[in-house]
Write a protein that binds this DNA or RNA. Sequence first.
DNA 1: ATAATTGCAAAGCTTTTGCAGACGC
DNA 2: GCGTCTGCAAAAGCTTTGCAATTAT
Lengths: 164, 164
Amino acid sequence: MAASPSHRVSTGERLNTAETTGKLQQSVAKRGIRMTRQRRVILQVMDDAEQHLDVDQILERAQKIDSGVHLVTVYRTIDLLKKQGLIDELDLLHLRGDRHYYETHGPRDHIHVACLRCGKVREFESRLYEQLKEQIARDFHMKVTVSRTEVGGYCEECLRKTKE
Amino acid sequence: MAASPSHRVSTGERLNTAETTGKLQQSVAKRGIRMTRQRRVILQVMDDAEQHLDVDQILERAQKIDSGVHLVTVYRTIDLLKKQGLIDELDLLHLRGDRHYYETHGPRDHIHVACLRCGKVREFESRLYEQLKEQIARDFHMKVTVSRTEVGGYCEECLRKTKE
DNA sequence: ATAATTGCAAAGCTTTTGCAGACGC
DNA sequence: GCGTCTGCAAAAGCTTTGCAATTAT
C-alpha cells in the first residue's frame, strides 16, 4: 500500500492540464494585483505544475509559452507570490545543493519524502501530521500558519539495489 | 605565507565550559578523522552551542577561542560534518533570508517552531512525530534516515500585541 | 495620465575552489 | 615523510537592485 491515490509521485517533468482557470491566477486577480503578460505566464506555469519547480524550471516553462519572460521577472513574481502567501518555498533537505523549489499552496499540507540515493521525491499526507500541528498550537498557544516537513531516506527500489 | 604559526588568543577571554569531552569531538575522533587545531575549535563551538548557529556565528565564536580560524575552514568543516551525518542543516522557513543554520544531531529529532513576527524559535518533541515517520516508512517501504520539520506562526505574545 | 512593471546590466551575497605552504599522524 | 588541511585570493553560483523604457488600468 505504498503510493496510494493521494500520493502524487513526482519524478518526471510532464506538463499536462493547462486550464486558464488556474487558482493562482484567480487569487492574484482577486487581490487587485496588476496583471501583466509575464505574470500571467508565470502564474499559469505555477498553476499547471504537478510538482515543485525551481527558478530555472519555471523560467524554462514560461519561455516555452512566451519567450519574452526574463529570469529577473520570475524572481520578482516569486517574491510577490511568497509575500502574498500563495506559494511555498522548499529546499528538499538540500539534496541538490541549495536550490529552492516553489509550489502552489494547496488546501492541505503535504510532506516531501525524498530518496537520498535516486533523488525521487514523493508527497505524503496524513492525519497524524495535522494532529501534530494541532498539538504544537495547543502546547505553545500559537497560531500555526505555515509548516514544512521534509523526510529523507532510501526508497524500496534503492534499498534492493544496495543489497545486490 | 599560509597557516600562520599561532594565533591563539591567550588573554582572559570568556571562560568556556567546554570539556574536551564534546560528543562531536568524540564522534569525529572515533571515525579516525584527522584532528587539527581549527577543527577542534569548531567542533567545540558546535558542541557547546545551546541551539542552531549560522556560519558567521560559528566563525565568530571560533575566533574568540582561536583567532586563526578562517571562514573557509568553517565551511569545510561544516561540509565534513554534514557528510558524516553529525550535524543537521536548517533554514528555518527562510525567516531571515536564506541563511543556513547548523546544529548537532541529537538523539531525538525535534521540530523547530518559529514565530514569524518576533523570530523566536523554540524546539518541540513529540511521540506523534515519531509515529508520523514510522507511518511514512511503512507506507513507502522506505528506510527513513533524516527528517526536518519547521513550523511557523504567531506566538502567544505576538498574538496579544497584534490585537492591541 | 501615471504609477507599476519590465529588461538589462551590474552589483551583492554566500559558498566553493585552486594552490602553495603548514601540519597531524 | 606523506598525505591531508589551511589561508588566501579569486571564481562561481544565485539573487537583488538601479534605471530608463514600457505597459496596465
